[in-house]
Design a protein around this nucleic acid. Structure first.
Lengths: 225, 225
DNA sequence: TAGATTGTTAATCGATTAACAATC
DNA sequence: TAGATTGTTAATCGATTAACAATC
C-alpha cells in the first residue's frame, strides 16, 4: 500500500515536474512537425489544423493533438494552430538554451552531405568542426567547416565547446576514437558506422545508431513481403 | 465466444502461416545481428551466445532469443549459436529470392556515400543506377554506378528491373519525382529528404522516411536533458 | 550433479487509437 | 444551432521483459 502510494507520487512528479521526459517517438515527431511548420510558414500559411499536419506526416490527427498536449501547447481558437507560435513552442521544448556545438569524425562524403544539408537550418545546433587523419583534408576547410587532425580532438573539443559528435568514419576505425569521445566529455553521439556502440553507464553518453544497410534492408523486407 | 475462437485461429495463422509478418523492430534487429555475425565470422568466431550478441547491441539476451524464436531459428546445443548457420538463416528471412535492384535519385554526396558504403556488402540487394539532372553527372559513372537523366527514369527502371529507390535529391525537388516513382511501379522508397512522403494506398509503396535533422535533434534533446 | 544456456509463455511497459466532453 | 475542431481519458495494441521449464 505504501509502495503504491509512493509510486503514484513519483508518477505525478514525472508528469508535472519533468516535462523534459517526453516519449522518444514524440520527440522525433516534434522535430518533424517543426520542419513541416517552417516550410508552411515560408509558403505564407499562418494556421494549420491537426488533421492537416497529420496527413502530411501520414499519421492521425489524434496523435498530433496528443503530442502537443504532452508538451503543453494549446490553441486558443478552433481555426487551427498558429504556425509561428507552434514553431516557437516546439523550439522551447527541443532546443537547448545555448547553442550546442557538433563535430563530425571522418570527413568523407557522408560528412559533407550532412554538414552542407544541416548548417544554417537550426540556430541552436551547429556543426563547427571535422576531424580526420588524411593529409588531403586536415588543415583545410571542407563544406565550410575546418578539418582538424584527430590527434587534436580533445584540444579542439575544449576550444570549441563541442558537446555532440557525428561518427562518419570507416567502421573498422570506430574503436580507436571511442576512448577519445569518453575522455573529452562528449555527451551525445550520432553513429552512422555499422558498429553499434555502447559506452560505460557512468560516462552518461546518449547514443543513436543509424546504419544505412539496416534501413535499406528493412525497406527491402517490407517491399518484397 | 465465437469471436474469441475466431481470433485465436487467426493468430495461429499469423504465427505459423505468415512468418513474413515480423515486428518492425525485430526486422531491424535481425539486420543488425547479421552485420555483427558477419563481422564475428571474419574474426574466426564460430559460435556465439545470446548474451554476447545482446551485449554488443546493448540489449538483453532474452530479446535476442525471442527474435530468433520468432523466425524459427534454434540452436541444437548449449554452446551458443553457430554463426554461419545463423547468418544463412537470417538471410533466408530478410533476403529476397532474387536480387532486388536499387536506384538513387539525386547523385550528390549522400548518394555517393551510400553507394560506396553499400555495394558489395549484400548479395541480394544492389544499387545499380543513379539519376540526376546535372550535365556534370548525367552520362558519367559515379561511385561505380551509371548516372542517367531523370527523364529516362521509367525506361531505365524497366531495363534494369529496379524495385526500390533511395531519394537523396534536394527536398524542394521531391514532388517532381513522386509521380515518376508511382508510374514506374517502384515498390519501396527510402527517403532521406526532409519531406515526409505519403503515396496513395493503392500504389502499394512501402516508404521509410529518415531525416538527418531529426536524428541530430533527437540526440541533442536527450543530450541536454 | 550444478551451473549455464536456450526456448517459450505470461506479465509489464510504452505507444497509439478510440471515445467523448468541451468549445467555437 | 449543427458541424468541425480541440484536449483528454480510457482502451487497445505492440514490443519488451520477467519468469520458468527444459536441456546440455
Amino acid at each position: 500500500m505504501i509502495a503504491l502510494a509512493f509510486r503514484y507520487i513519483c508518477r505525478k512528479e514525472v508528469k508535472y515536474m519533468q516535462p523534459s521526459k517526453l516519449p522518444e517517438r514524440t520527440v522525433e515527431r516534434l522535430s518533424e512537425y517543426r520542419r513541416t511548420l517552417l516550410n508552411s510558414l515560408n509558403k505564407g500559411v499562418t494556421h494549420i489544423y491537426s488533421h492537416n499536419l497529420a496527413s502530411i506526416h501520414g499519421i492521425t490527427a489524434v496523435q498530433v493533438r496528443r503530442d502537443l498536449m504532452l508538451i503543453g501547447f494549446s490553441s486558443n481558437n478552433k481555426k487551427g494552430y498558429n504556425v509561428r507560435e507552434l514553431i516557437d513552442f516546439i523550439g522551447g521544448i527541443l532546443d537547448s538554451d545555448h547553442v550546442l556545438n557538433v563535430a563530425v569524425i571522418g570527413m568523407g562524403n557522408l560528412a559533407s552531405a550532412i554538414t552542407a544539408y544541416f548548417n544554417g537550418k537550426r540556430s541552436k545546433l551547429r556543426i563547427v568542426a571535422a576531424f580526420d587523419v588524411s593529409d588531403k583534408k586536415v588543415g583545410k576547410v571542407i563544406s565550410s567547416i575546418p578539418c582538424y587532425h584527430i590527434d587534436d580532438f580533445k584540444e579542439q573539443v575544449r576550444n570549441n565547446n563541442i558537446n555532440i559528435v557525428i561518427l562518419t568514419l570507416p567502421t573498422q576505425e570506430v574503436d580507436s576514437v571511442c576512448g577519445l569521445v569518453i575522455e573529452s566529455g562528449i555527451k551525445g553521439v550520432l553513429n552512422f558506422t555499422s558498429k553499434p556502440l555502447t559506452f560505460p553507464e557512468e560516462a552518461g553518453i546518449y547514443v543513436e545508431d543509424y546504419d544505412i544497410i539496416t534501413l535499406l534492408e528493412k525497406v527491402a523486407y517490407y517491399t518484397k513481403g
